[in-house]
Every structure is written in structure tokens, then in C-alpha cells.
């Protein structure tokens, strides 16, 4: 299995998620699977400009040439992608969100009906399963987790994937590995 981990922690200080990701990646590797970790804060990821060049000028390719291209390439060949971020003001970090916005070239502008709603067509045959690992912030409550989980489910539909799991860093690494199908 090929697993991609996107670490969206904006700062290496003061959060426990970096250490968690290290243990998680170690566990995946030890079980003989392939894992790649991108630490987004160390990469150059320009925000999506909404120019739609990736749909109407250079189909499938973003007009911005930065590290998001490498991420998109790895993303589309992975079996499972885990988006990781501390919650900041109740949502994933802007560092991670900017990387997620740059996934637009992976889908097609054409719309089609999926379960009574309009969504975009696939560009590729296969998309990875999407999961989320979050670290709670001060004041994180059930409502926050329900809001982000519902948004993640929508994002999974629109990236033509499915939502795997949404966990917080309170979950033992072993349990996460079990859910990834790694024993």
C-alpha cells in the first residue's frame, strides 16, 4: 500500500502532531508499506488563484509551478492520503488548505449527477482514500469536530474519493495503523 501523509502543522514548536506523524510513518514503514511525508511548511505552496487554467488552458496542469505540483503527482498515485493539521480557529491550517485547494487540476470541469447532486467528473481513473488527523486546540468541542468532519466528507465527494477516518491525536498510533489496515 502507498500512503501519503501531508503534515499541515504550520510550526514545529508547541504542537504534538509532528511527533505523532513520525510514529505513524514509522509504523507504516515497519509493516512493509510505502509512506511519504510532506511537511508543507517547508515547501513552497502558492494559494490557488482561481484562474481555471488547469481546466481550460492546460488541462490537468496548474499555471503555478511550485511544490504543489510534486504533491499532486504523489497524491494521484497513492492509495491513501492522510491530511494532518492542528485545528486553528476551528479548521485545518491555511498551510494545509492552500495545498488542498491546489488539487483542482486533478478533477475535470465537467459536471455530472452523483446521488441527486451536481459534482465534477473524474480526470483520473483512481483517486486515493482521504483521511484526516487533527490536533485539538483550546476550546475544541463536538460541534467543531462535527463541522469539520462534514466538510471533509464533502471534500472527499468532490475530489472523487471517499472519506476514510477523521481522528484526533488522542487516538493511539496503534489504533490508527489498524484502521489503515496495517497490523
Amino acid at each position: 500500500m502507498k500512503i501519503l501523509i501531508l503534515n499541515g502543522n504550520p510550526s514545529e514548536k508547541g504542537k504534538e502532531i509532528d511527533g505523532y506523524i513520525e510514529r505513524l510513518a514509522g509504523g507504516i514503514k515497519n509493516a512493509g508499506h510505502t509512506v511519504q511525508v510532506f511537511t508543507l511548511r517547508d515547501m513552497k505552496i502558492t494559494p490557488c488563484l482561481g484562474c481555471f487554467d488547469c481546466w481550460v488552458k492546460t488541462p490537468g496542469l496548474c499555471s503555478i509551478k511550485d511544490d504543489a505540483v510534486e504533491i499532486a503527482k504523489t497524491f494521484i498515485t497513492a492509495d491513501h492520503v492522510i491530511f494532518c493539521s492542528p485545528l486553528l480557529m476551528g479548521f485545518v491550517s491555511s498551510v494545509l488548505k492552500n495545498a488542498m485547494d491546489r488539487k483542482l487540476p486533478l478533477i475535470h470541469p465537467h459536471l455530472e449527477e452523483i446521488e441527486g447532486e451536481v459534482h465534477h467528473k473524474k480526470r483520473y481513473d483512481k483517486y486515493p482514500l482521504l483521511s484526516f488527523l487533527l490536533e485539538k486546540e483550546e476550546g475544541t468541542d463536538e460541534e467543531d469536530l462535527s463541522i469539520v468532519t462534514d466538510i471533509f466528507r464533502r471534500e472527499s465527494i468532490n475530489l472523487r474519493s471517499a472519506l476514510g477516518f477523521v481522528h484526533v491525536t488522542d487516538t493511539p498510533v496503534k489504533e490508527m495503523l489498524n484502521e489503515l489496515g496495517i497490523h
Partner: peptide
């Protein structure tokens, strides 16, 4: 803002973090 991947654009999230 326009909807970007089912939420706010990353740049709007940058501003929200600056409001903390």
C-alpha cells in the same frame, strides 16, 4: 469568498488565523 474545495480559500483561512 468563493467556495474552494468545500470551504474557504486557503488565503481566507490565513486571515482567519490572523484574527485569533
Amino acid at each position: 469568498f468563493p467556495l474552494y474545495v468545500d470551504a474557504m480559500p486557503g488565503s481566507v483561512k490565513e486571515f482567519i488565523e490572523a484574527l485569533e
